[in-house]
Design a binder for these strands. Sequence first.
RNA 1: UCGGGGAUCGUCUAAUGGUAGGACUGCGGAUUCUGAUUCCGCCUAUCAAGGUUCGAAUCCUUGUCCCCGAACCA
Length: 564
Amino acid sequence: MSHTDETPNDLPPNFIRDRIVEDRQAGKNGGRVVTRFPPEPNGYLHVGHAKSLCLNFGSAAEFAGRCHLRFDDTNPATEELEYVEAIKADVRWLGFDWGEHLFFASDYFEQLYAYAVALIKAGKAYVCSLSADQIKEYRGDFHHKGKESPYRGRSVDENLDLFARMRAGEFADGEHVLRAKIDMAAGNINMRDPPIYRIKHAHHHRTGDKWCIYPMYDYAHCVSDAIEGITHSLCTLEFEDHRPLYDWILDQLDVPCHPQQIEFAKLNFTYIMLSKRRLLELVRGGQVKGWDDPRMPTLSGMRRRGYTPEALRNLCERVGVSKHNSVVDVTLLEHAVREHLNATSRRVMGVLRPLRVVLSNWPEGQVEWIDAPYFADDPARGTRRVPLGRELFIEHDDFKEVAVKGWFRLSPGAEVRLRHVGIVRCDEVVKDAAGEVVELRCTLDPATRSGGPQSGRKVKGTIHWLSAAHALPIEARLYDRLFLSESPGDVGPGGHFTDNINPRALEVVHGAFVEPSLADAVPGTRVQFERLAYFCVDPDSTTELRVFNRTIGLRDSWAKQEGK
RNA sequence: UCGGGGAUCGUCUAAUGGUAGGACUGCGGAUUCUGAUUCCGCCUAUCAAGGUUCGAAUCCUUGUCCCCGAACCA
C-alpha cells in the first residue's frame, strides 16, 4: 500500500497518517476521522502543544473530519479560568478552528458518574478505604507484584452506597477512593486496580462546589473520547502503558464507540525548556515577566516576540511525527521563523546605536523625501517616503576608525553606499574630549544617487541610515535564547535549571530610532530593520514611545567571519 | 530483577525485500543598493554480530544502548 493513496496533498508521510489511511480502507468508523486536542487548563500552551495541535487538527482536516477542543479539567486544584481563555486564544492564533466542538470533561461529570455506577454494578469497581500510603504500599513495585486491598471484596450494594455517599460529601478527602478491579499482579502497574475517583473538596472553575469527587485522568479521558465519538485519540509516548487501561475501561462499559489511542513523541528543542512545571516556576519566580514574555516558548510569548503561526505550522510539518524521543535543533525553529518573516516583512530602516553623520555638501535645511520600496525586489508591493537631510544617524557598528581586513563599511577615507541614496565618503572623524567618536563628516557623490547616471557604481558596502531631524525615538528590546545550555533541563547535582538562564536574553536599548513611516505602527506589526533583524511592535508601546521586540536577527556572515 | 517503547547523516525525518532521499546545521562559491534573500556545490548515516535471500535499514536470532512507567497529577 502506498502512503499517498488517500493523501490530498504532498504532506510528508508519518505513521499516524498511515494508521488512519489503513483504518479508512478497512472501513472503520465508517471512514470518519474525529480527533481532539485535550489540554488541561493549568498553564499556557507552548510550542510542544503546537505539534499536537497541528497533528490533531491537521489529521482531521486532511480527511474531512473534525477536531474537538476539549479541556481536561478534572483536577480543580490546579486549573483556572484564565488558562482556559488563554488556551482558546492561542489555538485560534495558531490558525485552528474547533467550530461548535468546544467541550469540557467537567461537562461529562454526571455521565462519568453514571458509568462509574455501571462499573460498580458489573463488579468491576470497588470503593477502597485504604489510605494513600497504604495503596501505594499494596501496589508493589517494578519487581514485586501488588497485593489485593482488603476492601476489594466489598459487595456491589456496599460499593454503591459508599460511592453515593462519597458524592454526597459524607467523607473527608482521602477517606475513600473508587478503584477499578483489574489485576494486582499485572506487570503493568497501571492495571493494578487504579483509582478512578477521588474525594476532593475543592472549588472547580466551572462546576463550582457541585462536586466533591472527581474522576481521574485514566477514567475520564477514554470515556470522554467515547462520548464525543473520537476515532483517533492521539497522545504522547508516556501514555503508552496507559493504553491497556484505556481499552479495559471502554471494554467494560456500554459506550457509544471505542476510540483508538495512538502515541507519538513529544517535541523538544535544544536551548528550550518545555516543562510546564518549570515554565510556571519561571513565571512565579519572576525570571520572566509572565507567560507571554517574549523569552518564553509559550505560544503567547512567541506571538508577542513576533513569531508567526505560519512559521510554527511549517515547523511542525518539517519536524514530522514519529515515536523517537527527539530533540530538534533550535536552528530549525529559527529557520522557519526567518523563512516566513523574510517573505512577508516590509523592509524599513532603524538605527539601534546612532552615530551622527553630517553630509557636508548637502544644503543646510534642505529635506528630500525619497520613495523607497518596502521590498527591493518587488516595488509593486508598496513604497514609503523616507526623508533625507544634512544630518543623519548611522549605526555605530558600521564605522571603524581602523578598518580591518574584509571591512566593507565606513572608515576614514572609505566609501559606502547609503541605502536608497548614493555613495558617501568619510572625510573627517569628530571626537569628544574623551576621545570617543561622536560625529562623521561625509560627502555625498551626487552622480551616484539612486536612479542617477552612476547609480551602478560598485562599492562593497551598503548601510542603513536615518534623517536625524525626522528619526522617531523608540525602545528596542533585543531578545535572545533564554538558556545558555543546549539542554537546559540537564543540571548537575545540586544545580538548578535556572542556573542556565542567559542573563542577556533581554537587552533593552534606549535611544534607538526608526524612520517616520513607522509612526503609526500598531502592536503586532512585524517589519525587518534592514541589515539587522526582524522586529515586532510590542503592546507596551505608547503614542509617545513605541517598543520594538527583536524577533530574530538576520543571519550575519560578517559576524561569523569576524569571530573566526 | 518487571512492564511498555525506541535505535538511519551533527539534528529532525524518508525509503514498508530492489539506486539510503529530503530538510536544518556546517563548509565553500555565484549574484546582490540588506555581509540579508536567492542560487550552486561539498561534507556526513542504517547500534553490533550472526542468519535467511539473487538482493536486507527493512525479515529472523542473539546482544548492546537509550527513553517512559510504581500521584488519590495529567
